[in-house]
Simulated assay, not measured.
Amino acid sequence: MGLFRSSEILGIADSALEFALAASEEAHPNEYMGMLRGEEASNLGLAEDGTVLSEVLVVPGTKTNPVSAEFKPINTPNDLSAAGSIHSHPNGVLRPSAADRSTFSRNHVHIIVGAPYGREDWQAFDRDGEPIDLPVLDVDPPEEEFFDFTQEDIDNELRGDEE
């Protein structure tokens, strides 16, 4: 059994795609690279079973230049919800290179965005490097709380109050 109830990728959140397009444009003329976090569709208010690519995870220590982007696997966020990868091709070519294909087996979906980084300048691929259709979904990823306590909790702890 996989991490998600259904390993089917239903689409990518509009906000995640917008982030990746903007980050790719900002990195130009170098490549941009990130991981894609998946979220259960039901957590996003969708009635379907499956996963939505909801967020782009930035990998610390990523090295880029105009023809490649790489990171050490040890720097990959320890995030079990990683469901794909995304990177840019500053030359605008929306086809995976041999190097791209060699990394595709690690996740469900891989997206390449190309210059000039507009709404139509991207393509999704499956594990085998074959193009796939990936709908852009208008969903809001759930807000994550970095801390699971409030100032009131801290004050109660300092006073020695019991819950």
Rank of each mutant, 00 (worst) to 15 (best):
L36A: 01
H89C: 07
H28N: 14
A69Q: 06
D133Q: 08
T64D: 02
V58S: 14
E25P: 03
E40K: 15
D138E: 10
E120F: 09
L94E: 14
E31L: 01
I86A: 00
E55K: 15
S102D: 14
R119M: 11
R101D: 05
T64Q: 03
S24Y: 04
G118E: 08
T150K: 01
F19H: 06
L10G: 02
P96C: 06
G45R: 06
E39L: 10
P77M: 06
N65G: 11
V67P: 05
T51N: 07
D140M: 07
R95Y: 13
E48H: 09
I12P: 03
N107P: 10
S88I: 05
G118T: 11
V93L: 13
E152S: 04
P73N: 14
P90M: 09
D148T: 12
N91H: 13
I111C: 01
F125M: 04
Y117V: 04
R95A: 14
G45V: 11
A16I: 00
T150I: 04
G34T: 00
S85C: 11
T103F: 14
H89N: 14
I132Y: 01
S54V: 00
N43C: 06
Q151L: 07
G11V: 02
I111G: 01
R159Q: 10
L44S: 05
E143Y: 09
H89I: 07
N65P: 08
T64W: 05
S15V: 01
E130F: 03
A82M: 13
L158M: 15
A69F: 13
N65M: 10
S68T: 08
V109E: 00
F146V: 12
S81T: 08
K72V: 15
I12M: 02
E157Q: 15
E162I: 13
K63T: 14
I112Y: 15
E55Y: 09
I86N: 00
E157N: 15
F146A: 03
V93S: 13
D133P: 06
A41H: 10
R106T: 15
A41S: 10
F71N: 09
Q123D: 07
T62S: 12
D100V: 05
D14C: 02
L10N: 02
E130D: 06
S24A: 12
N156F: 08
L46P: 10
E48Q: 10
T62Q: 11
E48M: 06
H89M: 07
D79V: 07
E143D: 04
